[in-house]
Design a protein around this nucleic acid. Structure first.
Lengths: 222, 222
DNA sequence: TACAGTACGCGTACGGTGTACGCATGTCAA
DNA sequence: TTGACATGCGTACACCGTACGCGTACTGTA
């Protein structure tokens, strides 16, 4: 009669994991405390025994994404290491699109975030970049990566419906008002748009530029 | 007795303008239809006579931000034009921080957005970049600009309180676990962090790299 | 002047959100 | 047995976007 119900105890980890999964499939807008609780078969307010509030939960979710990124080896071939880091970062952001706007805006970064940033900075410093230039390089790489991910999320070049909608709105309506823009819509609509190739072109462009810059510095130390 | 009240008729423009102002001072979270209506001394639902929904309103708000950006001259010195474009874009995004995550994600871009993108693309094409390379260049410039703006928004290097919080959280707690990260926090805490200088370094880095790339292309046409 | 048509402002209501508060239950120590 | 404590959860509140429909006021036409 006294049927014991111990439906797996709620833990912070289980909550974070469920939240990440929910945001992945349903989008950021679907991520509500009520939905998370339902996913776990628990009451909404039960969550608040394990997380202080939603912001606190988001901190941990972001750290999960950081944990999925490649951690560059500090003494290694800096260009190769940071290339892999960039590619895995974009991949992680692709798997968790909701994270893009959140990654760099957290005020309480988690351990994975610390490890990640430390390794990246270390990679640049040990490659011979003076402090200030390492900061410049870091800024370039991250701004590009997050910016690319931001744009990649929603620009609808692939689906024909959206593409057509976009085309008529911006181009077709007022014939030839935007010839260069029209070229983009038409050409990319025809040939398609390979996000991976595009991203890696830019990443390599920056890395090679940095390598040139590094060599120039090494020749004449300050 | 019959006191006429004609409190300035509501128009779409007045609504958009009030919304932009509200988001500027109160943040994106403060931008609710109720608050906009109150700002205008109108009832909430009165707004819906002029805008289809909040998404529709956001489209127009984004176009306001695009309209504040410098439109590069299509035949001119492409590097100078695009440098000014980049700087004014960052400035506009600084004035309207809520816009960063929205600029490139609109599905119904407005006229200012069209003009802006067309002029930028035209600038690159007329400078001699073949179509595909112009797209690469465009992607690099915009990803960097939006990525920088995204990071600039909330990284709290300036305010001592947040800086100290950040430092203890990521560095001080577990002594020397993140030496390279510690260096960043300490050094930038000491010397400060000039966002403008940082942004322009990266922008010039990309522009100069593109110029080199352009010259290489011109030497041997495909 | 009278009336119809229309544009506009707005009140109410519904289903969603985050979360403060307090109560109920289960487990373990004394 | 008794108390302390951690955990789960139900209710309630203030906010959100917005569907729906009603009243008012201006305007063009007869």
């Amino acid at each position: 009669m006294t049927q014991r119900k111990k439906p797996v105890p709620l833990t912070r980890e289980r909550i974070v994991s469920a939240a990440v999964g929910l945001a992945d499939v349903g989008g950021f807008g679907f991520l509500s405390m009520r939905n998370i609780a339902e996913e776990l078969g628990a009451g909404t307010m039960a969550l608040y025994r394990h997380v202080a509030n939603k912001e606190d939960l988001l901190d941990d979710m972001v750290d999960v994404v950081f944990a999925e990124m490649y951690v560059p080896a500090i003494g290694g071939d800096w260009k190769k290491e940071l290339r892999e880091r960039g590619i895995s970062a974009r991949a992680a952001l692709g798997r968790h699109p909701w994270a893009v706007g959140l990654m760099e805006t957290r005020m309480h970064p988690g351990p994975a975030s610390g490890t990640h940033h430390n390794a990246t900075m270390g990679c640049l410093r040990e490659a011979g970049f003076p402090f200030r230039d390492a900061v410049h390089a870091y800024n370039l790489l991250d701004a590009y990566t997050y910016g690319f991910a931001l744009q990649e999320q929603t620009i609808p070049f692939e689906t024909p419906e959206e593409s057509a909608d976009m085309a008529t709105t911006t181009v077709g309506e007022q014939g030839d008002a935007y010839p260069y823009l029209a070229e983009v819509v038409i050409e990319l609509g025809k040939r398609g748009y390979d996000y991976t190739e595009e991203f890696e072109f830019g990443l390599d462009f920056i890395l090679e530029g940095l390598e040139r810059y590094r060599r120039a510095i090494r020749k004449r130390p300050p």
